[in-house]
C-alpha cells in the first residue's frame, strides 16, 4: 500500500484517477484504518487530503457557508460562529465517537463512509447542504442526499472526491437540531438519528421545514410529508403526532445487532418530534 499526501485538488484527482478503484481517500482515518486492519478492504493507495487547503477551511461568506471535507469534529465544535448558524450540523458531527475520535474524524469522512447510521448526514440533509465534488472533469455540486446510493456507496465517478460542503446562510428565524438514540450515553453508533431544520414566519407558524432520518433505511432519507404537515402550522400536539407518524412511516429499517425494526420505527417518530422542538425553539430566538 502507498501513502500519498497531495497539496492540491488537481494532484489528488490525478492520483485517484490513475490508481482507479484501488485508491481510497484518507482524511481522519477513524473508519478507514479499522477497515484496513480488519482486512475488510485492501487499498493499493491512500490519498491523504488533509494537506489540501480547500478541505481544511471553514469559510463563512455573506450568503454561503463552506465546510472543508477534512475539518474534524473537534475543529467544528470550536468554531463558535458556525455553531451559532448550524448548531444541529455541528452537534451531529460532534456526536461521532469519543473526544479522541473527534480529534481525527472529519465531516467528509463521516459522509463518505456512507454508513446509513452516519450522524452528520441527516443533519446535513435537513439543512439543505450541497457537496462540492472535484473530479477529472472539473468541479460539480450536488445535494448531499442525491449522492447517497446504498450502504457503503456514494454516486461518485472514478477520480472524484468531496472537497467541501456548502450551506446557504440561514434566513431569519431558522433553527436546526440533530438527535440520535444510542443505548449508552456515549460511544455507540446511532440506532436512530433525526435531523431537523425549520424556518418560522413572523407570526410564529412554520415557513419551511426539512426532517431527515438516519439508521432507519439503507441511506439517510427525508421525511417527504414533513412540509405538508408543518407548513403554516404551529407546533401543537396534533402536528407532533402527525410528524411522528410520518417519520415512522418513512422508516424501512432492518433488524441488526444495534436495533430492531420495531424499535427503530417507533423511536424515529419520538426523535423527530424531540428534534423539531429544539429546532423550533432555536428558530424563535434567531
Amino acid at each position: 500500500m502507498r501513502y500519498e499526501a497531495p497539496e492540491t485538488i488537481e494532484a489528488a484527482v490525478a492520483l485517484l484517477a490513475a490508481a482507479g478503484k484501488t485508491a481510497r481517500v484518507f482524511a481522519g482515518g477513524t473508519d478507514l484504518i479499522i477497515q484496513i486492519k480488519e482486512e475488510m478492504i485492501e487499498p493499493g493507495m491512500l490519498v491523504d487530503i488533509k494537506k489540501i487547503k480547500e478541505t481544511r477551511e471553514v469559510i463563512l461568506d455573506d450568503d454561503e457557508i463552506r465546510i472543508g471535507a477534512s475539518v474534524t469534529g473537534a475543529e467544528l465544535g470550536e468554531n463558535k460562529e458556525l455553531k451559532k448558524l448550524f448548531p444541529g450540523v455541528v452537534e451531529a458531527v460532534q456526536l461521532i465517537g469519543s473526544d479522541q475520535v473527534q480529534g481525527r474524524a472529519t465531516i467528509g469522512g463521516n459522509f463518505c463512509n456512507a454508513s446509513p447510521a452516519a450522524d452528520s448526514v441527516p443533519a446535513l440533509i435537513a439543512s439543505g447542504a450541497k457537496a462540492v465534488v472535484a473530479g477529472p472533469n472539473g468541479t460539480r455540486t450536488a445535494a448531499v442526499e442525491d449522492l447517497l446510493i446504498k450502504p457503503g456507496q456514494l454516486s461518485l465517478a472514478p477520480g472524484e472526491l468531496i472537497i467541501s460542503f456548502c450551506l446557504s446562510r440561514p434566513p431569519k428565524n431558522t433553527g436546526d437540531a440533530y438527535l440520535r438514540f444510542i443505548p449508552r450515553s456515549e460511544m455507540d453508533i446511532a440506532v436512530v438519528g433525526a435531523g431537523v431544520s425549520v424556518t418560522l414566519n413572523p407570526d410564529g407558524t412554520c415557513a419551511a421545514a426539512r426532517v431527515a432520518l438516519g439508521a432507519v433505511a439503507p441511506t439517510a432519507r427525508l421525511v417527504e410529508q414533513a412540509p405538508d404537515i408543518l407548513l403554516g402550522k404551529e407546533l401543537d400536539e396534533r402536528v407532533l403526532a402527525e410528524l411522528a407518524a410520518a417519520a415512522s412511516a418513512t422508516c424501512q429499517p432492518i433488524n441488526d445487532k444495534r436495533g430492531t425494526i420495531k424499535f427503530r420505527t417507533s423511536v424515529a417518530g419520538v426523535l423527530a418530534c424531540r428534534a423539531i422542538k429544539i429546532a423550533w425553539e432555536r428558530a424563535e430566538k434567531n
Binding site: 443505548p183 449508552r184 450515553s185 455507540d188 453508533i189 441488526d256 444495534r258
Partner: peptide, 24 residues
C-alpha cells in the same frame, strides 16, 4: 453476545459489546 443464524459472533468488539463508559 449477538450471533447470526450461522452461529457466528456479530459483536466482536467493544463498540457493540457495550460495556459501561464513564458517562453511563
Amino acid at each position: 453476545y449477538i450471533y447470526d443464524d450461522k452461529g457466528c459472533l456479530q459483536n466482536l468488539g467493544f463498540l457493540d459489546y457495550r460495556m459501561p463508559v464513564a458517562s453511563d
